[in-house]
Design a protein around this nucleic acid. Structure first.
Lengths: 159, 159
DNA sequence: CATTTATAGTTTCACTTGAAACCATTTGCA
DNA sequence: TGCAAATGGTTTCAAGTGAAACTATAAATG
């Protein structure tokens, strides 16, 4: 019985399936931002995220960076190795705990940050520009709700 | 003047930066779905996506699968090799174009599909359950708008 | 109809990635 | 104190990935 269609199987309509849509939209916009800096500064997505976090929270340890970027610690370790080698991040050892590193952007790191951050913001605006103001507001609220609690707005690192 | 903070640098607030939030939310939910089938069926994310597309559009070629999943053709080729070897996908050669393959799920493929698809739908419901009905409706509309046109709802494959 | 050009799909190669193992240091606790 | 367990971070290894090269077939062009 060579049935051509299988309506009884209820296949997913991928293009209206939320996790799929999220993945496509997210990848598209992240890639657009990455294109802005990748070639230009020889900077990977991972490295940029580390820099963005250090721009906001000076003096974090590698583990804290991993926590805030939701990346695994191996990825962070490697990104840091490259960033330190390139002179974009400064790393020294914590005064009272010799295992921990204390991280921050160097002047060169800040220069790159100050060039890339506005481009990233522009991409965010481009994305929002495709929505009505009302939709923009809803999207913000919705994403705030959907963010897993451990990555969402914690208090800033103290100096 | 050893400034401790750099307010003049206007660092991104990652946790309120849309592309970043999208990436986190998307990865979290995709991972949750993957956890449901990965170990259970020895099935990679790529493979599952190929199966989901074939469940919906029987008889596609490998290139068409790549188009619909927004994955590159190398990834699709490898996923298909594994799926065919595992007896989950049937592949034969197009009658009038010997380069093209004609793909579809086997009975075994359908069995897996029919087990995984409801779990995926459940995860989608779990995600939506964290939002008010009003927010759910807005989110659907917003994502439909943000989907790049080439991946969004095309017409079904012709027989 | 012969030859160039395009297309479907696979293979190769260099690179990335994450899990597990590892090293050093610190903390918990008998 | 001294020793086991936990923690911060790096290295190793095996698997996954994409770009480019490649094979085979089809379409376009003279």
């Amino acid at each position: 019985m060579p049935a051509k269609r299988h309506p009884d199987h209820a296949p997913l309509e991928l293009e209206r399936f939320l996790p799929y849509q999220l993945s496509i939209v997210s990848n598209t916009v992240s890639q657009a931002i990455a294109d802005d800096y990748q070639a230009r500064h020889d900077l990977s997505v991972t490295e940029w995220r580390v820099m963005a976090v250090l721009a906001r929270f000076d003096g974090l340890s590698a583990r804290e960076v991993a926590e805030r970027t939701a990346m695994d610690k191996v990825a962070v370790s490697r990104a840091l190795a490259r960033l330190v080698a390139a002179g974009r991040v400064r790393r020294h050892i914590h005064a009272s705990d010799k295992r921990r590193s204390v991280l921050g952007l160097t002047a060169a790191g800040w220069r790159i940050h100050d060039e890339v951050a506005p481009m990233a913001r522009q991409r965010e605006r481009d994305l929002l520009a495709r929505l009505e103001p009302e939709e923009q507001a809803w999207l913000r609220g919705i994403l705030d709700k959907l963010m897993p609690p451990d990555t969402a707005g914690q208090t800033a690192a103290k100096g």
